[in-house]
Amino acid sequence: MGADFVQLSLTPILIGVLAAVACAIPGNFLILRRQALIGDAISHVVLPGIVLAFLVTGSLGTWPVLAGAAGAAVVAALMIEAIKRLGRIEPGAAMGVTFTSLFALGVLILEQSDTSTVHLDVEHALYGNLESLIWLDATGWESLIDPTALTLMPPELIRMAAVTLLVGALAAVFWRPLKISTFDEGFATAVGIPTRGLGFALVIVSALAAVAAFDAVGSIIVIAMFVCPPAAARMMTDSLERQVGWSIVFAALSAFLGYVIAGYGLTWFGIRAAVSGAGMIATVSGVILALACLFGPHRSRIGAPSAS
């Protein structure tokens, strides 16, 4: 755990943890509202947005990427709404139509255009490249208090930290209305909470978290972190406050353990192979969820048929 660790592993781990937490917080509300697959849809549709943004601006900077992804998310939301209303189609199928076609469009444009100058391909979009987000200018733990080295940290870290803070702050500020409208929409409307606006805002915040995380770590982590840590947390408690707490712990744990196992785990078995960090983080979150499903104190559904 010396200079190498700070240089090569500290920033990817931090970025992974922040991305996981940023997705897990809105994920708690999404799974309670039966909208768990929104994360799946968002992470598919941002691809065409990012590709188009790149083609228009010629760069993969923060703002073009964010604008493109946000634009694509809005287009997708409108498309889903339009298909649902105009065709009277159930939401799941409307979502399926939208995200597969937009993703296919993204892949097609990507294959047709010359993106060889930048790091943009389908594989990158799917599983990111956490391992490349290293802090080359660090010389050891002391770099953490060295201002010049700190300014040369990967920009993704600052971005991800800002988004995570924003997501956390929004959840704290809107906690009461969010909680009430998630559990009892009718009551929430009756006491004057704008439930529709709040629901839309939740999707927007999820999209923001997804886009920021997608840029850094790829879409697998995004989908896994929206669902697995909150789902595991739901097996642990009946209180929403504690559930969000558990989900943050599970998300951070998945990111940390996943990255460490991917980076060092196989060498313990004597295999010298680099393994995808993003994939391993998703796998660890799945193992945590499986354990929670099997042993969590609140795993069973209230009123569910006992055995059938």
Partner: peptide, 17 residues
């Protein structure tokens, strides 16, 4: 829907590994 999301992301992640 949560079960679908969990299975698809975890299996896919493990597949990538």
């Amino acid at each position: 829907d949560a079960a679908i999301g969990a299975v698809l992301s975890v299996f896919f992640g493990f597949g990538i590994v």
